[in-house]
Design a binder for these strands. Sequence first.
DNA 1: AATGAATGAGCCTTCATTCAT
DNA 2: GATGAATGAAGGCTCATTCAT
Lengths: 204, 204, 204, 204
Amino acid sequence: MNDFPAKLQARAARKTAKRDEKKRQIAASALNALKELGYANTSLRDIAEKSDMSLGMLHYYFEDRSDLIIYCVSIYKREFVRAVTKALTAASGRDEVIEAFSEALVTSIIEDEMTHRLWYDIRNQAMFDVTFRPVVSEIETMLIGTVGAAFDKAGHKIPPEQVAIYYALVDGAFRYLMQDQFSATPRSRRALQAIFRDLLAQFF
Amino acid sequence: MNDFPAKLQARAARKTAKRDEKKRQIAASALNALKELGYANTSLRDIAEKSDMSLGMLHYYFEDRSDLIIYCVSIYKREFVRAVTKALTAASGRDEVIEAFSEALVTSIIEDEMTHRLWYDIRNQAMFDVTFRPVVSEIETMLIGTVGAAFDKAGHKIPPEQVAIYYALVDGAFRYLMQDQFSATPRSRRALQAIFRDLLAQFF
Amino acid sequence: MNDFPAKLQARAARKTAKRDEKKRQIAASALNALKELGYANTSLRDIAEKSDMSLGMLHYYFEDRSDLIIYCVSIYKREFVRAVTKALTAASGRDEVIEAFSEALVTSIIEDEMTHRLWYDIRNQAMFDVTFRPVVSEIETMLIGTVGAAFDKAGHKIPPEQVAIYYALVDGAFRYLMQDQFSATPRSRRALQAIFRDLLAQFF
Amino acid sequence: MNDFPAKLQARAARKTAKRDEKKRQIAASALNALKELGYANTSLRDIAEKSDMSLGMLHYYFEDRSDLIIYCVSIYKREFVRAVTKALTAASGRDEVIEAFSEALVTSIIEDEMTHRLWYDIRNQAMFDVTFRPVVSEIETMLIGTVGAAFDKAGHKIPPEQVAIYYALVDGAFRYLMQDQFSATPRSRRALQAIFRDLLAQFF
DNA sequence: AATGAATGAGCCTTCATTCAT
DNA sequence: GATGAATGAAGGCTCATTCAT
């Protein structure tokens, strides 16, 4: 009897899934333009041109510019956090955690500098524009969680409110080193690794 | 005999001084608008309106928008660095330095959150727009110098290249705590001080 | 089998054609404003207002102000050269050419004074602004060609490098007489015709 | 008894003379900027900067921008007409006039191309802006007079209204050749002279 | 579902002109 | 006499967004 509703629901779900897939695809393209030019300097036109999409489509799938950017950033987040988390799962014991964590951070600094640059841009923008705060907050919570997990795995117990501070410290170093990668004299992978290892060794 | 050149020179000097004074005055006004709205959201019109200046005047004194913003930021820098430096001069010995330094940082977080927010905005922008790099670089050098001075005064010897990392750590914490001051539940002065004291105690 | 590419190509062609048509239409409107006010005194806003177009549209179809103006002028060129050429095709023999050529010139002076006025404006601007040189050069080449054709048809052989000088002479007279048409005492069609007839008779 | 008025008058005259001298001096400086950039592209600021004059002074001596430009052009005119006239005075007889006239024209094309370029610019502007018409008209009358004088001296009688047409022809050639001097392949003095000599020989 | 033409508000900048000194 | 600080109108151009197709 109520097959119909079920069918309709299924169809709607399929539709939503398809739409989401498309959104993800668009966001991936948009991310490229944003990474390169930054929040303030990337227009929707830039995005459309750089990714062979029509201007109309951007608005068809996303409410407005902010909506698109937020979507882009939240995609990035999953990627990064997943990568770090994965790196940590294999590790056990203080030394292995230090090794795995610093390795993951360094790799990301070297390979994804531009994505991180954008993240810092959006995080900053969030302080002026409340629209961005929810995503930024969500991402930071995840990042803090990752740092907490590392401490746990390393066998170093610290009170929850302290974890946030340690995140802030690691992030401070991460950001500084990433910024320097854009300078005329970027650090070698080796040098970066040494810095993070020392840092984490001090923390744990 | 050659009074004339002297007089002309004096007049030119007075003129330059006056112009500089005016620039500073304009920059102070502009800073208010920028602090509130951020780099990406502040137009020259906003600045002109918020400070009862004509649009033309901004361009009369500053080459372009970037020039004005750079001037504003570099004024802020002197202020902040001077304040921290001053706070440190009076202190001697590890404990006094920790006390003075954390006190200075906390005060600045509470009283100048908006200026710092702008600073982080510009520093970020510099990663996308080379125009801002020189100022940002200059300011960060000064900030690193301040951190170095604190270590010195606290009697804690560390190699120069380490100072930059410690700056990055302190900055990471500072930024994080400042950001939270804009949230619904800002920290109390007491809480902030505790955090910085612990942090510095750990570092020194 | 490969209908698809063909279809896509056809669609793209139709689109380009439509866009070109629209550009021509806009240029025609813009030409009216330019003819009246001249290069230096016509803003894009003037053009938009005088022809009920939005400012944005002008920039949607043309790169910038120069691009629009160049397009306008190059449209004018085709018109004028075509008119003169057409007038000459029918003529054969010295007397008929003199008659047809002077008739075409006079008609154009009387009916299109304002377009010619603009042409002289742009041609002049080209001496200061290299942007305009290619169009101006292209048009002058066509005009010289027209003069050359007239000489040919009239059975008067002259070396190629001389043609340009004759063009310059005819143009000098044309410009002078056109300018006078804007004075308080414009010449009659009859008078203009007499002048050109005499002139051409002397040349051929 | 009425010495006073006389004295006052004399003083006023001296004052006017001094003011005129100053205006001439300013105009000479301004001419340099105008020659280079052209009417549409030269701001009063440009003029002030290029000639070490204050912006205020320009307005102190000249009603407005047009007034200054008109003054500049009228200075140029005296110079040019005087030069040509002088060249003609020494000549007598058809051949000598042809020689002297073409020599004067060629010299001016080569040495004063930029001034002529400006003249053509202003003459054109006059067609759109009535403000410039009086000066332009005045100058053209003088130029026509010069051409008339050449015909006279060459012993070639032509009716007055014809003189204007010959002026237009010579001017057409002059302008065309001058324009080419700005191209990549300017003509040699020798080539220019040949062209003008042939032309004048044909006219006289 | 997707497109891209069209809009108009807004941005940065330039400029002739005025005026207090 | 002369200066240059200050103004505000206007200019070219960009952009997010809307909407007819």
